[in-house]
Design a binder for these strands. Sequence first.
RNA 1: GGGCCAUUAGCUCAGUGGAAGAGCAGGUGACUUUUAAUCACUUGGUCGGGGGUUCGAAUCCCUCAUGGCCCA
Length: 521
Amino acid sequence: MSADESTQHEGVWEPTQLEQQRLIKLQQLRDEGVEPYPLRAGRTHTTAEALRAFAEAEAADGEKEDGQEIELTVAGRLVSIRDMGKTVFADVEDGDGRIQLFLRRAEIGDEEHRRFRKLLDLGDFVQASGIVFRTRMGEISIRVHSWELLSKALSPLPVAKEQEVDGEVVRYSAFADVEERFRQRYADLAVNPEVRDIFRTRARLVSILRRFLDEHGFLEVETPVMQPIYGGAAARPFVTHHNQLKQDLYLRISFELYLKRLLVGGLERVYEIGRDFRNEGVDATHNPEFTQLEFYAAYWDYHDVMAFTEKMIAYAAEELTGSTTISYQGHTIDLSAPWQRITLRDAIRQFVEIDYEEYPTAEGLAAAIREARGNPPAGATWGKLVDHLLGEYVEPLLIQPTFITQYPRDISPLAKRLPDDPRHVERFEYFIGAMEMGNAFTELNDPLDQLARFEEMQRLYQEDDEDAHPVDADYLQAMRYGMPPNGGFGTGIDRLAMLFTDKTSIREVLLFPHLRVRNST
RNA sequence: GGGCCAUUAGCUCAGUGGAAGAGCAGGUGACUUUUAAUCACUUGGUCGGGGGUUCGAAUCCCUCAUGGCCCA
């Protein structure tokens, strides 16, 4: 490497001592005519297929010593090398699992034997051809007669050593630094197999939900991520700008207003699975971008949505785990329908011993909270105080799946009022494992009432720009054409993924969670 | 936004005012089927950055950065 080339790496890569050693090996491989990054591989079997093929052949051959020989080629990452001298044992891992390679000097030749021992490192991708057999220790392995380097790893992976003891995998020095795991998720995935399983589970969850909705007559749609007016939730948006149109655009905070426009257009059941963006704090259950599932069904009310929700989540559990009973943070949670239903007012009366109906003003309710429990958030509206009581004192107790129903109108501008109680709307949120999982209403379809609510919200949040709801005139136009009565639903895919993978941090179920940019000073 | 805690070798960590360490990984060698292989020798450090106290700081103080947990 010339001096000029090395200066080009400045700030990008300054090889550590370990990396320099690997660079030397790389050069040596090239000097010996070995291409460290060949164009093509020649895998015939995954490791799992190799093990299965051998087990089947063994069963077919019975006790015969000279059964049929299975010749194959596997490929994967070198994750363990045990060098015994004339014999080398090495484990290769691929997407399916791992298998042991057995390399003897007498069988692969002096040169290849030396090359394997001296020029390969943990983390390199290799392929190996040979015959499957069982070692003296009883492990199904490949008696290698030839091997090839597929990709030289220049940086050492943060190695996690492991050992199987009585069927349990015991890990040693696993790559555990939370920040580094997320900053270098590729390394995390490479060395921590259970992390790969989290994302397989997440992908299956999404696929199962999609199938469930498809099978119930829902049409999957895609609506704008960049919106001229944001809405459908109380949250601050991210703002971007279209240069040519000289127009500010908002990244959506929900899909709601677009999906309901589709009901006006005659699409009776629609759903969308996609990314929402909220310009708010980052913590264990909040990431600035997160995945949401929303659906809307014409002629349903929130009772229909509740029945559908408990059926859908129980189905997802059954399909994912084979059971509607799951374990989350030490709790056994039964997701089978029907779930408990309790009104918000009753829940707060029961768990906080405050009947918020007795305190119709923000000042009065705040005083009652102060007397019963402690400090409520300063300057909160009445609706926000009710929300505070729910989040603070009720939510932590809702381990088993629970529908909390009938929310104050103040904090629900898109839901229909209860027929006999204009202060409350037909809305529910559902909770599992002490997490708020989703939100649903009998959707407001009266365009004049909707306009009044928008204006009411603007008055309520006049002094609080952060949660201001802009009036969406086009949405109101859509409603004026006539919107069928409908029930709508939104749920956080990330939180469902947390539930089904037994994680308490949203970052564990996001491949690349939001992290602060690291300051390199 | 506040409180507490953390940041030491590639990884996991010990070291709490007096000579920077261990295991694994890496290097050299030994070893005829091992499996955290083993054995011998060995390389590797801006102790997160900056400032201060002190004869002397990884250690005490201030500050900044990043992260974790809790609270708002």
